[in-house]
Write a protein that binds this DNA or RNA. Structure first.
Lengths: 259, 259
DNA sequence: CTGTGTGAACTCGTTCACAGCA
DNA sequence: TGCTGTGAACGAGTTCACACAG
């Protein structure tokens, strides 16, 4: 038991659920619970118990038969698998409302992501301190890590921040028109993964990993479901008075859940 | 040809790609292009041509063999399928950075979503005008549409706003602690679909459709890919100089694309 | 001859059911 | 006995390849 698995291929579908388990496990852990069954974890995460077991079995054999899993150990193993136990210096480009929301979000802080740099082009915004970080001009991204950059390095309020490290992940929170230019600069700066909030597909080297989050897409999917709801309503003889079960996510690959 | 299909069951995977096609088609249409092949649409959307054809065939037979599709007609058909041609009054709860970003986002306006109401509990925020809408106190949500609500109705700067209509879709952009309470109130107000940005699963009637968008989840998935990138690097004999192809999305169900 | 529309093959993910260990 | 771990069955979604319409 408790044997981590040598990098067996982990399905993407599983990966997208791991952060969800983390969230649940962290809560369970805070409640002082010392063991958890796949069934319990499943209910809390709003998925099926078999799925939980299969997902976890892809990382290794962490459970104790007849008992369940140790939440603490599970958390550390999932963290390791996701690489969240390492430090991935993050750059956020575009410090408008969305950028600020991201930097200040619970997710950024609670899951150990460290914002290493903020960039914008608006003179109003450049120089502002957001989340304890000075916003730099986008041009500074091009000379990130080079000697000329030293002047701006220690401008942040936090003295224990390390100097400019190689940026690993870039987050694009700019208007759509700027996205491609920003992506090019991020790639040039050595970023290997990009999370893009701008509704625009990106071109670039094929070894760069990109994920898109498009708010209006999500809304349009909601619109679809709402349409069907209304259509279904016309058929129903009685508008059934509802029970109070759990809300699973509507046709989503990763995110879902119920607590 | 051009025969819409009577509500055949449409796969969720297809639905999540339709907004992506819309985005591409709208650009193509703006460029004055009068016809588009599945191949071209596929490249622009960053997916496979067969997938495009299969997806579209689920809505009906809109193409002309030997020629391609009419972008304008396609847009209108997809809009209809998604229900975006109807009006779904939207409520956004939580007008912090994220809420503001959402309300002002291109997606909300360009895809025809109309924000019918904004709610918050912060006295600093209540009464502010955001995106041409007055922010109401959350308590006003409980009496939405009832006679007592009339006083606040015409407070917005925009005189051609219709009166309080039944809210159809709710967007939760509050801190996690508030999410469940807000969800309960939204459901009580008659909302049928909820888009939840708070990292917390929701309980409620099973006929309410919920989709979750969790920023930190996305980041953790990025972290996973970045880990594997680094791991792969150690094996590679040569850090290959990269070509410049298109960036597909990394293991995503819906969102993806390249323009 | 070009490009759609679609059955059929295939791949990936989910669920089942139970063997095996604590 | 109880719950994990997993092969095997199933189902959803993707890709292939080709018949057929313009």
């Amino acid at each position: 038991m408790a044997r981590p698995r040598r990098s067996h291929h982990i399905p993407i579908a599983t990966v997208t659920r791991l952060p969800l388990y983390q969230r649940v496990l962290t809560e369970v852990l805070r409640a002082g619970q010392t063991t958890i069954s796949s069934e319990e974890l499943a209910v809390l995460a709003g998925v099926n118990a078999a799925k939980v077991r299969k997902d976890l079995s892809h990382l290794g054999t962490f459970g104790t038969r007849g008992t369940g899993y140790d939440p603490g150990y599970l958390v550390s193993q999932i963290d390791h698998c996701l690489g969240v136990d390492r430090d991935w210096p993050l750059a956020v480009v575009g410090v408008g409302n969305l950028g600020r929301a991201l930097v200040n979000s619970e997710g950024f802080s609670t899951r150990g992501f460290r914002v290493a740099a903020l960039f914008d082009v608006d003179p109003e915004v450049v120089g502002q301190v957001v989340g304890g970080m000075v916003v730099r001009h986008l041009d500074a991204l091009d000379r990130w890590g080079t000697p000329e950059d030293l002047d701006a390095s220690q401008a942040g309020g936090d003295p224990d921040l390390p100097g400019p490290a190689r940026l690993e992940i870039g987050v694009i929170a700019t208007p759509a028109e700027a996205a491609q230019d920003v992506a090019d600069r991020l790639v040039a700066a050595g970023v290997g993964a990009i999370l893009d909030f701008a509704p625009r597909g990106l071109r670039g080297p094929s070894d760069i990993v990109v994920r898109y989050v498009d708010l209006s897409m999500e809304l349009q999917v909601m619109s679809f479901f709402q349409s069907r709801r209304h259509a279904a309503w016309e058929d129903r003889p009685v508008p059934v008075p509802v029970p109070v079960p759990v809300l699973g996510a509507a046709g989503q690959a990763g995110s879902s859940g119920a607590a």
